[in-house]
């Protein structure tokens, strides 16, 4: 599954980041395989979303979040 499908209360681990320039930018911003992510807010119109990643809060669009593969932590 990918980050655009994450629900409130779930904590997930990033497994893979796809996309050319987007992936590079995400890596630079600390969105790396192995990092934990959790959903924090959803904007009023359902998109973008804000997730906690590493030690900060990142806002991203669902279409971009779909490039981030995650696995829900047990």
């Amino acid at each position: 599954m990918n980050l655009s499908q994450i629900k409130f209360g779930e904590v997930a681990t990033i497994t893979k980041v796809r996309g050319d320039l987007l992936a590079l930018k995400l890596f630079e911003m600390g969105v790396l395989p192995g990092e934990e992510v959790a959903l924090e807010n959803v904007a009023p119109f359902g998109d973008p979303i804000a997730v906690r990643v590493g030690e900060y809060k990142l806002c991203l669009r669902l279409q971009d979040a779909a490039h981030i593969e995650i696995k829900i932590n047990e």
């Binding site: 996309g19 973008p48 900060y56 809060k57 991203l60 669009r61």
Partner: peptide, 12 residues
């Protein structure tokens, strides 16, 4: 030609 993404840090 740029890929269209929107990433923004939400500071505390």
């Amino acid at each position: 030609t740029q890929i269209n993404y929107f990433l923004m840090e939400l500071p505390g």
